[in-house]
Simulated scan of single mutants.
Amino acid sequence: MSPRILIVEDEALVAMELRFVLEDLGHEVVDICATARSALNAVRETEIDLALVDIHLSDGATGIELGRRLGQEMGVSVLFMTANPGMVRQGVAGTIGVLSKPTDERAVQTAVDYALRRRQGQPIDYAPPGLQLFG
């Protein structure tokens, strides 16, 4: 079964490109959500392995709290993808790290692979380039 990924991104072109990259890598993109509320609803309706979460969404800067809730309360692995990585410099409880936008396909691939391997409890001896890990 391929990993189930949720994209939380309010810029449609960014979200669609991310979807294509992830599907080309063999992952299942369960949904694309532009607000924290729609993302929470998506997670309640189906099992999600990993959420890629932007900080600034259609309903404001709600991504940080969304990431915390998904990670701590709902058991979803969370990577932030944002042009504002300084907003989460201190880390967010329950989340893995942040990938700065704009990014490229290779950075997305290595960050997603890292997060999924970590979720499965596999040994990891590297930090992917471009991914700032939280404590």
Score class of each variant (00 low, 15 high):
Met1Gly: 15
Ser2Glu: 13
Pro3Trp: 13
Arg4Ser: 07
Asp10Arg: 00
Glu11Ala: 15
Glu11Phe: 12
Ala12Gly: 00
Ala15Val: 02
Ala15Ile: 05
Glu17Ser: 12
Phe20Glu: 15
Phe20Asp: 10
Val21Ile: 10
Leu22Ala: 05
Leu25Gly: 05
Leu25Ile: 09
His27Met: 01
His27Ile: 04
Val30Asp: 06
Ala34Arg: 00
Thr35Trp: 09
Ala36Arg: 12
Ala39Gln: 02
Asn41Asp: 15
Ala42Ser: 12
Thr46His: 14
Glu47Gln: 05
Asp49Gln: 12
Ala51Ser: 11
His56Asn: 15
Asp59Leu: 13
Asp59Trp: 09
Ala61Ile: 11
Ala61Lys: 15
Ala61Thr: 06
Gly63Lys: 09
Ile64Glu: 09
Leu66Asp: 05
Leu66Thr: 06
Glu73Gln: 14
Met74Asp: 02
Met74Lys: 15
Gly75His: 13
Val76Ala: 04
Val76Pro: 15
Ser77Arg: 15
Val78Met: 00
Val78Tyr: 00
Val78Pro: 01
Phe80Lys: 10
Met81Cys: 11
Thr82Tyr: 00
Ala83His: 08
Ala83Ser: 08
Asn84Arg: 09
Gly86Asp: 15
Gly86Gln: 04
Gln90Trp: 06
Gly91Val: 03
Gly91Cys: 12
Gly91Thr: 04
Gly91Ile: 04
Gly94Pro: 02
Ile96Leu: 14
Ile96Tyr: 06
Gly97Met: 06
Val98Arg: 13
Ser100Trp: 01
Lys101Asp: 00
Pro102Tyr: 02
Pro102Glu: 05
Glu105Gln: 11
Glu105Leu: 11
Glu105Tyr: 11
Ala107Leu: 10
Ala107Phe: 11
Ala111Tyr: 11
Asp113Cys: 09
Tyr114Val: 08
Ala115Gln: 08
Arg119Ser: 10
Gln122Val: 01
Gln122Asn: 04
Pro123Met: 13
Pro123Cys: 09
Ile124Ala: 06
Pro128Thr: 02
Pro129Val: 11
Gly130Pro: 00
Gly130Tyr: 11
Leu131Gly: 03
Gln132Pro: 03
